[in-house]
Design a protein around this nucleic acid. Sequence first.
DNA 1: TACGAATGTAAAAAACATTTTACATTCAGG
DNA 2: CCTGAATGTAAAATGTTTTTTACATTCGTA
Lengths: 64, 64
Amino acid sequence: MKNNIRELRKKLGLRQEDVATTLNVTRQTINAIENEKYSPTLELAMRLAKLFDTTVEELFHLDE
Amino acid sequence: MKNNIRELRKKLGLRQEDVATTLNVTRQTINAIENEKYSPTLELAMRLAKLFDTTVEELFHLDE
DNA sequence: TACGAATGTAAAAAACATTTTACATTCAGG
DNA sequence: CCTGAATGTAAAATGTTTTTTACATTCGTA
């Protein structure tokens, strides 16, 4: 599953740690998701989309 | 986390088992999600939204 | 180049999602 | 009321996500 998180995070001038603390997860979690080690939970995905003012479907792309 | 899956499933005239086999999960998984025992993975949430021709944000509602 | 800041990574443990098997309950139609 | 179909539920096993702690690497810039 691909995602645009790094790109949108940088557009906002945030560090991985900033995103992490805003969403109450650890920096390692944000790092792992950006580097596609695994997909986030649904709840975290929705909170990420909201933070970046986009939708889950725009932020994450299902492998068909 | 609330969701509209049961309502949309019935609108399509599908059984829990139909949804399950379409998405390659078990009936118990669909049942647990409809009854909000737990939230699905991001991948399953996106596949559910696609099946019901809607978005993750319309199908699932974050508790604020 | 040297420094600090940001990012990458790893291992173990905890928390959570899914499967499998099996049985119980509900519900609509004959 | 009976029956079969659909749904609900439970426990154990497995796989995945997240945390914690700790250290390594990269990057910009003084």
